[in-house]
């Protein structure tokens, strides 16, 4: 892309309502050459532009090997996402990206992978889970720890059930509030950490979600001997430009949009728990 600011037109090929407030858009650039040339890594994000309203940064959930479409899973939280939710199959929107640094998937090969996510934090990590699942033989244990507020908030439930049946894969899910026939834990996500079957010395942890949850997860992992530099976190901050110019996403000297959004824990450790950064 020659101009880092300029979006390209994309078409909604499919729209999936995941929950009352969460939906997935499956997209294709309308210019076939641009679509064919488009590459991204799990953990990277695009800026989605809704005509006449504005842009939002949204992570890409689909697999980079899927040449047909790329997917964004979005929760309705603000002006732009509320509008995006109204779009239908065939509608057009603007896309620019991909931006930022994704997950350390090459470094994770041959090691146990621990995924920790809360809330809709699952969207950026689902791209990792899918990536590992499709290349299962390259990785050790895969442990997925997911927390939701209410059992009804869990999207992709069938997928989690399918994943839990895969060899060397452990799925641990906690809902603060359960429902009847909820097969997983009722309580805090933090209560699941000690059940994770990973070898601390060969584990790579990747997490995304509320920072309070990630803080507890980091403490637990460090406490059981996982090296700090084996912990990776996907951070969220306000972003307008996505290319390190507008200044909104800074955490200390880091620009989350271009230095992240995925950070190695030691890179952001000093300000991770500080209020106001």
């Amino acid at each position: 892309m020659s101009d880092p600011h300029l979006p390209s037109e994309a078409e909604i090929v499919e729209r999936v309502q995941e929950s009352p407030t969460i939906f997935t858009l499956r997209l294709r650039f309308t210019d076939p050459a641009e679509h064919a040339a488009y590459r991204f890594a799990p953990g990277q994000f695009n800026m989605l532009y809704l005509y006449g309203v504005g842009e939002v940064p949204i992570s890409i959930v689909s697999d980079p090997g899927d040449e047909h479409l790329f997917d964004h899973t979005i929760r309705v939280v603000g002006r732009v996402t509320k509008g995006l939710a109204q779009l239908k199959t065939g509608d057009r929107l603007g896309i620019r990206g991909p931006y930022g640094r994704g997950w350390p998937l090459k470094e994770a090969e041959g090691r146990d992978v621990l995924i920790v996510t809360g809330g809709l934090g699952c969207a950026p990590t689902v791209s990792v889970i899918n990536y590992v699942m499709r290349r299962r033989e390259r990785f050790g244990q895969l442990v997925i720890i997911q927390g939701v507020k209410h059992a009804n908030d869990l999207i992709w439930r069938e997928q989690y059930e399918r994943w839990s049946a895969v060899k060397d894969t452990q799925v641990l899910i906690a809902a603060d509030v359960g429902v009847q026939l909820w097969p997983w834990h009722v309580g805090r996500i933090t209560e699941l950490f000690s059940m994770a079957q990973v070898e601390s010395s060969r584990a790579v942890a990747m997490m995304c979600g509320p920072e309070g949850m990630m803080e507890v997860a980091v403490d637990h992992l460090c406490g059981r001997g996982v090296a700090e530099n084996a912990i990776w976190l996907s951070m969220e901050r306000s972003m307008h430009c996505a290319v390190g110019l507008c200044g909104h996403c800074q955490v200390g000297g880091k620009f989350v949009c271009k230095d992240g959004p995925v950070f190695n824990y030691p890179e952001i450790k000093t300000l991770f728990r500080a209020e106001g950064f």
């Binding site: 504005g54 842009e55 307008h240 200044g247």
Partner: peptide
Amino acid sequence: FCHSEADQP
């Protein structure tokens, strides 16, 4: 250098 971006229909 901080700046915001916004759409103006």
